[in-house]
């Protein structure tokens, strides 16, 4: 792997790094989409990920967002190891099915052929299963820590990643098309709202106050993203540029520490691109966000990035400040094409 050896040295890790990726490798069958990627994002930085098409940028994004598990390597978010290949995953189903089966077995042994007694025990086993299985599937925090103590490790799911402070947008916009802009943002606020279904059913004052406040806040996010007055528009009816903004607003509503933006200016005209670039800058200064950006538009990248990482064919070929990247001969060769001699 001479290429890896030649890559620019990794940024030294500091305790204030939002994200640390350690030698992430992802294979799809025979295709190596990512090879030993080392990656660090310092707090409140704007870091860009660039590279030609098929370089593995979106794959890397999806690994961070918990959508695809890496083949090897791990990712720490704010000091928590959240993503790594599963360990002892086969133990988990045993954990779910052993208790009910045990109860059933005891029931069969104890009741001595009395079918009605067996059925009662069976019901008990079923009850137990209905308590265990949904918990195991929903994976609440205490369950996670319990199985971790047993040495089982499974990567965090997308919603867990959101919980630990990562918001994201998608390369090909994925909004809730038949919901209004405001509702889209409200879904983004899902984890920040506390009222339970019971609150909703009883329409408790707490619930009503929270809903009221949530709508005000959601409207503010829309405004921040430049969608003032679009609250009740259905997402699918918004023009393309506004859909991109709405996705950003929805991601902001998660109140993330780290915001992942996958080509936020794709398909936009220069004016819109300028607005989005300004917005990204404001997100850092006003909200104190850390941003990881995938972007093709070099003016955007060079203009706002603190550091840039260049991927090519799944490998990190360079890392540095925009100035360094601009001058790096490997980048110029692999990404921008050979300069005319």
């Amino acid at each position: 792997m001479t290429a890896t050896a030649q890559a620019a040295p990794a940024v030294p890790e500091t305790p204030d790094d939002v994200l640390i990726a350690r030698s992430i490798t992802k294979q799809f069958g025979g295709l190596v989409a990512l090879r030993n990627i080392e990656f660090v994002i310092p707090r409140r930085a704007i870091v860009s990920l660039i590279g030609p098409n098929g370089a593995g940028k979106t794959t890397f994004f999806n690994v961070i967002a918990g959508l695809i598990p890496p083949t090897s390597g791990s990712i720490e978010l704010s000091g928590m190891r959240l993503i790594a290949p599963a360990r002892r995953a086969w133990l988990e189903p045993l954990l779910w099915f052993a208790p009910p089966l045990l109860v059933l077995l005891i029931g069969i042994l104890v009741s001595g052929g009395n079918i009605q007694l067996v059925a009662l025990w069976g019901l008990l086993a079923l009850l137990l299963a209905t308590l265990i299985l949904p918990t195991a599937m929903a994976r609440p925090a205490w369950y996670e820590s319990f199985i971790r103590r047993l040495g089982i490790f499974r990567s965090a799911r997308p919603n867990d990643i959101v919980r630990s402070g990562v918001g994201r947008t998608f390369q090909n916009i994925r909004l809730f098309h038949n919901m209004t802009a405001l509702e889209n943002v409200l879904v983004g606020m899902h984890l920040k709202l506390r009222s339970t279904p019971v609150d909703a059913v009883l329409s408790t004052p707490r619930h009503r106050a929270e809903e009221e406040e949530a709508r005000v806040r959601a409207a503010r996010y829309l405004e921040l993203a430049g969608l003032r007055g679009r609250d009740d528009e259905l997402a699918r009816n918004l023009p393309y540029g506004d859909q991109r903004r709405l996705e950003i607003a929805r991601a902001l509503a998660c109140e993330p520490v780290l915001l992942l933006l996958d080509e936020p200016t794709a398909g936009m005209n220069p004016r819109e691109t300028g607005e989005i670039t300004a917005l990204i800058g404001r997100l850092r200064t006003e909200l104190g966000l850390t941003v990881l950006l995938i972007e093709h538009d070099m003016r955007v990248v060079m203009g706002i990035s603190d550091r840039i990482t260049v991927l090519d064919q799944g490998e990190r070929i360079a890392e540095g400040t925009p100035e360094e990247i601009r001058r790096n001969p490997r980048v110029i060769e692999a990404y921008l094409g050979k300069p005319p001699s």
């Binding site: 967002a65 959508l67 949904p134 599937m137 929903a138 994976r139 799911r157 997308p158 919603n159 959101v162 919980r163 994201r168 998608f170 994925r174 909004l175 809730f176 098309h177 038949n178 919901m179 509702e183 409200l186 879904v187 983004g188 899902h190 984890l191 709202l193 009222s195 279904p197 609150d199 909703a200 059913v201 329409s203 619930h207 809903e211 929805r250 991601a251 509503a253 998660c254």
Partner: peptide, 30 residues
Amino acid sequence: RLQDSRLGRAWMAIREDELAAASSGVNTIT
């Protein structure tokens, strides 16, 4: 009441795009 609550929005979000819902923090299984 449920339809207009956080849960109802999460249901609709899953109906619209399960992946995007999960990426907005909705625990889709629950």
